[in-house]
């Protein structure tokens, strides 16, 4: 008997081992390194030393860190709801199988196939203020050219726009999958009960979309918190700190300021914020009752 019980467990363990090992090696270990590393500093000659809370104390006193926190939160406060609303809208638009729908589905998904760095370079060129084609178009229409990436009050909005251009098609796919799983019968029953389109959306579709929405919201938030390529490739955090996302601050700390402890402390802060936000979002969208 005992023997019979043990064997399935060992089999289960063997099957799980590669995944658990991968999780430990590529997820948990780096997190542990970052958390511990945030309390260390590097001597000029390369030795790592324990510095306690020094890195965090310096961050707290540092106006550029607080600027980055502010920019990151503002960016995420706008970009995440915006992307969810747009991608949900797109998913609804391409839900019904009408003749041109495959074309639109593919068109919305197309930006997803372009790498983020390529996207950045593409939009850096398109929106280049002096020589870019978009300003050329504006000029030919008699409209004033815009500074885009180089305007202190336009750069973050431009970044949000480009991140969304790339992101919404991707998130649309998940929401579309969710929508396709909503049973038709529920809609038909609601229709028989006299519910209009708006009422059906609110009382049938939305409640059943909680799970896919929760996933997309959490995953999208995490992805946007970690956005780095366009900042690095186009704005370098500027102009005047307008696009200094925390990820870029962490990068600069490590590779420009040669301060690994500071970089790991910033990474830990990012991880903490994402963790808290994910919990809040999951709570917000938790399925209530039976």
């Amino acid at each position: 008997m005992k023997h019979g019980f043990r064997e399935p467990w060992s089999i289960v363990a063997w099957f799980l081992a590669p995944a658990l090992l991968g999780l430990a090696l590529f997820r948990l270990a780096p997190i542990a390194i970052a958390l511990v590393g945030g309390f260390t500093g590097t001597r000029l000659t390369g030795e790592t030393v324990w510095v306690g809370l020094r890195n965090y104390r310096r961050l707290v006193e540092d106006p550029s860190f607080w600027n980055a926190v502010e920019v990151t939160l503002l960016f995420n406060l706008i970009v995440n709801p915006l992307q969810i609303v747009i991608s949900f809208g797109l998913a609804l638009l391409v839900l019904r199988p009408t003749p041109l729908v495959p074309f639109f589905r593919a068109a919305y998904m197309a930006p997803m196939t372009v790498s983020l760095s390529l996207t950045s370079i593409l939009w850096a060129i398109l929106l280049e203020p002096t020589m870019g084609p978009v300003n050329g178009l504006l000029r030919s229409l008699g409209l004033p050219p815009q500074p885009f990436w180089r305007g202190e009050d336009q750069a973050l909005a431009t970044l949000i726009g480009v991140a969304s251009w790339k992101g919404v098609g991707y998130w649309m796919v998940f929401l579309l999958a969710g929508l396709l799983l909503v049973p038709k019968e529920l809609h038909e029953a609601a229709m028989i009960d006299g519910a209009g389109a708006a009422a059906r959306f609110r009382h049938v579709t939305l409640p059943l979309m909680r799970r896919p929405l929760a996933f997309v919201l959490v995953a999208d938030t995490a992805a946007n918190f970690l956005l780095f390529a366009p900042v690095y490739l186009i704005t370098q955090g500027g102009p005047a700190g307008a696009t200094a996302l925390l990820m870029f601050e962490a990068y600069q700390a490590a590779f420009t300021y040669l301060d690994k402890g500071r970089a790991l402390a910033i990474s830990s802060v990012i991880l903490f914020v994402i963790g808290v936000l994910a919990l809040l979002e999951l709570r917000l969208l938790r399925e209530r009752g039976g």
């Binding site: 500074p147 180089r150 202190e152 370098q236 955090g237 500027g238 102009p239 005047a240 420009t256």
Partner: peptide
């Protein structure tokens, strides 16, 4: 790097 970023911002009107 820090001065470079500052100069970059100055050229754009900071």
């Amino acid at each position: 790097d820090i001065l470079r970023t500052a100069l970059r911002d100055i050229t754009t009107g900071a």
